[in-house]
Write a protein that binds this DNA or RNA. Structure first.
Length: 439
RNA sequence: GGCCCCAUCGUCUAUCGGUUAGGACACCGCCUUUUCAAGGCGGGAAGCGGAGUUCGAUUCUCCGUGGGGUCACCA
């Protein structure tokens, strides 16, 4: 065995926010590199001057950091826009060798592009995931490798960079499969030897087509999920499981665990649909694993909506139970499912009574409840005990529904004891009195 | 349309020729419960079709069908 270091790369193009599919590509590359004590390098493919933007590059870099996918060329991030001289040299080299030529374009503007002389025939290569692949190269014609002598096109730049970085494994999306033959052609013309290719199945939208911003909107960028409060561990876990599995029944993995069990040869060939529900579930599972930080996030989120200095821990527990993603709290607030903890609810007098409960009965019971709350001990446990006693005597629905409604003003809410606990006995009294006045 | 890739529950998947085809998400039901949520228990749900190979095919081969990707001076 030769002692050659494994080098993989992640080459995003900063023409948009980091795509969720590219996150998985980065993850698989990262896992593969780390498993083999190899290098994971990043390269910014910004040869398209019009569409490339610095802010997107920053999004790429900060996203990788957020995900915990560290790369090894921190101090030496390749930007294709800064490598014009090298490409120019290589273009000239190819022209000198006679494998490429300057071509005067007759259509449109009178410009000179550089074309690669197509040798025809077939290109064969072994894909780590797909096995042997054979493609006819002739119908590519003499494809363009540079817009002009100074401006390379994607294929040329990729090959030159991969060669220079000593990339040993090209792990990328299946959409690049058909690019491979021409890249091999350029590569070999430049005297380089082929890396090992691994083409990952695509991540699909629900309509089974490639996830694209144009077609599927904002929900294709990592930022969208990050902004909603999904955790990096959950996103990584979920993405890892599209197109790969450990062969066991385990569904929840940390990055460290993935590092142990990931196996690129077990990656599927079939594209996988991005199932948001499964992502939500995965996120909740990871929230459970990191209770402390989750609780902190819940608290912060509640404070965004309600300017409170103290949030009762039981309220945090209760919210935790009801959400799978932090942004679900926004929906809870939107639906008025939290507001009554901070503001007196508007009671509808007709909704206080339980089923066929008579008004007299209701009034009598609520007055008893009020008396219990007025218990001089003001001990929540004691209050609960007496309310339970009352409920057993008078009927659970008859006692607990009006109480709960009085406290929350909602037909659906947590149980009244939890409510009293969070609201406090004093506030409970006020709300019961309020309810009685509306009967 | 050319070239290429792919094909097990709705979704992600296990199965390395012999299984009651397993798990998870989702869904449905029941229990618990004043309601909601959570939780517990349970249920329905799959090998695209046709030829082969074989004692035996979900599994191997071929054809068909279906889906997808790609055909830029974008990456």
């Amino acid at each position: 065995m030769q002692n050659s270091e494994i080098i993989v790369r992640f080459p995003p193009s900063p023409t948009g926010l980091l795509h969720i599919g590219n996150v998985r590509t980065a993850l698989y590359n990262w896992l593969f590199a780390r498993q083999n004590q190899g290098k994971f390098i990043i390269r910014i493919e910004d040869t398209d001057k019009e569409r490339s933007k610095k802010e997107y590059e920053e999004d790429m870099l900060s996203s990788l950091a957020w995900l915990g996918l560290n790369f090894d060329n921190e101090s030496n991030i390749l930007r294709q826009s800064e490598r014009g001289e090298i490409y120019k040299q290589k273009i000239q080299e190819l022209i000198q060798k006679g494998v490429a030529y300057v071509s005067k374009e007759t259509e449109g503007e009178n410009r000179e592009v550089v074309r690669f002389r197509n040798p025809g025939g077939k290109i064969k290569f072994d894909d780590l995931i797909r096995g042997p692949i054979e493609m006819e190269v002739g119908d590519l014609k003499d494809f363009i490798i540079a817009r002009n002598i100074n401006e390379p096109v994607y294929h040329l730049a990729v090959v030159v960079d991969d060669l220079e970085s000593g990339v040993t494994h090209v792990i990328r999306g299946e959409d690049h499969l058909s690019n491979t033959p021409r890249q091999i052609l350029i590569l070999e013309a430049l005297g380089g030897s082929r890396p090992i290719y691994a083409h990952l199945p695509l991540i699909l939208a629900e309509d089974k087509s490639k996830l694209s911003k144009r077609k599927h909107g904002e929900a294709v960028s990592l930022k969208y999920y990050r902004d909603k409060g999904y955790g990096p561990e959950a996103i990584i876990n979920f993405l890892a499981m599209i197109g790969w599995n450990s062969g066991t029944d385990q569904d929840i993995f940390s990055l460290e665990e993935l590092l142990k069990v990931f196996d690129i040869s077990k990656v599927q060939k079939k594209g996988g649909i991005f199932d948001q529900k499964k992502l939500r579930w995965t996120n909740k599972e990871h929230m459970k694993l990191r209770l402390e930080s989750t609780n902190q996030k819940i608290e912060d989120k509640i404070k965004e909506h309600f300017s409170q200095t103290n949030i009762h821990p039981k309220l945090i527990d209760l919210v935790f139970e009801r959400i799978e993603v932090i942004s679900d709290i926004d929906d809870l607030v939107q639906n008025g499912e939290l507001g009554y903890f901070f503001n007196k609810p508007d009671l509808d007098g007709s909704k206080i009574a339980w089923k066929n409960q008579s008004m007299e009965d209701l009034k009598r019971i609520m007055n008893q409840e009020l008396r219990i709350l007025e218990n001089p001990l003001e001990n929540v446990e004691k209050v609960k005990e007496e309310l339970v006693n009352l409920a057993e005597k008078e009927g659970k629905g008859e006692v607990l529904w009006p109480l709960r409604y009085a406290l929350s003003g909602k037909e659906k809410s947590p149980d009244p004891f939890t409510l009293i606990d969070i609201l406090g006995i004093k506030e409970g009294q006020k709300r019961i009195q309020d309810a009685i006045s509306k009967i």
